[in-house]
Design a protein around this nucleic acid. Structure first.
Lengths: 220, 220
DNA sequence: CTTGACAGGTGTACAGCGTACACCTACTGT
DNA sequence: ACAGTAGGTGTACGCTGTACACCTGTCAAG
């Protein structure tokens, strides 16, 4: 009997899937690819996850669980800000998670628990249920630490000069805005200009607005 | 010679693809499915679009072209608001377009032109280049008329009472917030609570903040 | 009038995907 | 000792996008 390799289990499968996605991107996580990585035949995985969708759920759960728990003793605004920025640092470690979360339509209990505790910060801070409701919608994916930057306006490859000139002709406003201030590649989640500064800028713009509504006694 | 069916061309292919997606959802738009719809063999499509990715680009372009052009004679805030709400009504007609746009990483010239003219509204209204830059990031997908509602918190199926009780135990805050005010199913783009009221609420929260920054002479 | 290029539709084929289903094997509780 | 079961295997199916060779009708040039 050969030295038996360690038995698979759900957590090992999920951990391997996350590691594979971290290392080679989400596309590398196919049932076949993941199985190979684990030295196992594809169908073996189905003994531990129901299907690929559930595998993705598990991967997302693993990421969400890395987000720091709410900190006691802070005002609601600081607590929310801190938690969201914690979510962001987690997503910087797992850039694939952004698209994975976007592509899902139903939350897992773990994601629900994350949302619930985040909502709890607002309600605990005295915000009305209605205002909290709207704020959660307004935040959208931002509570998970990323914004939806649809397109990458700062391409990695340098653009040839004739293209640059063409762009300046066709899209003068884009060029004016994009060339005004560069982004920090180290702080972006996935493609796009979703860097740390922009993220915090918008987050604070939001929280300012919410705080103002709250102080005005906004109710519905 | 049988009555020859009308020849294919790029526009007919794109129009059929959009119609198919409208009618049966984005998943129905496979090269084989679309070809069948056009009474043609799958490979015939490749004489008119380079590959499936370009097909999707073309479909998105078709949708973006439906968005109303900027209206002259309005202040920047009204002009932006109007344009974004126009984008939203377009996306209500083509709910599949939301995910399609999310899944792309590179904009087409037509999408760039849309962005350019939208940026032009801000710059033309006197906003600084820097502020405009941040605002475009902050708006994110909102300039295309949808928000990123990751999860559908108002499921279509009614939930059994024991599940409801379990939810109330596990996620009291979510339940409190979700049950507070219902959403209008007719005004949502895709799954989630992205309804018209929430959309405008957040849009105005944004525009308020931007206007305030602008009046403060915000520059960098 | 012929000829040759070419645009556009066809047919076959392949690699990759998720996964259903039958099987086999080793361990466990009675 | 025996039955049950958890977990890994092998084969196979239908689906996807698409490469490549082919054929056919139209049209312009010699």
């Amino acid at each position: 009997m050969p030295a038996r390799r360690e038995q698979l289990n759900r957590d090992r499968v999920l951990a391997a899937a996350v590691a594979l996605a971290d290392a080679e991107g989400a596309d590398a996580v196919s049932m076949r690819g993941l199985a190979q990585r684990l030295g196992v035949v594809p169908m073996a995985l189905y003994k531990h996850v129901a299907n690929k969708d559930e595998l993705l759920d598990g991967m997302i759960d693993a990421v969400v669980l890395e987000i720091e728990a709410p900190v006691d003793g802070l005002d609601w605004r600081s607590a929310v800000r801190r938690r969201i920025l914690s979510a962001r640092t987690v997503l910087l470690r797992h850039p694939w998670a952004r698209r994975a979360m976007e592509s899902k339509t139903t939350p897992t209990p773990i994601v629900l628990a994350y949302m619930d505790s985040t909502i709890g910060i607002f309600l605990g801070g005295g915000l009305s249920v209605d205002l909290t409701h709207h704020v959660m919608h307004a935040l959208g994916s931002r509570i998970y630490g990323f914004t939806q930057e649809l397109y990458d306006t700062t391409p990695a490859i340098e653009i040839p000069p004739e293209v640059a000139q063409f762009m300046a002709m066709q899209f003068p406003n884009i060029v004016a805005v994009v060339t005004s201030s560069p982004h920090d590649p180290g702080s972006v989640v996935g493609p796009g200009c979703d860097d740390q500064f922009e993220f915090e800028f918008t987050l604070d713009l939001f929280l300012d607005g919410v705080e103002r509504l709250h102080h005005k006694g906004w109710h519905s």
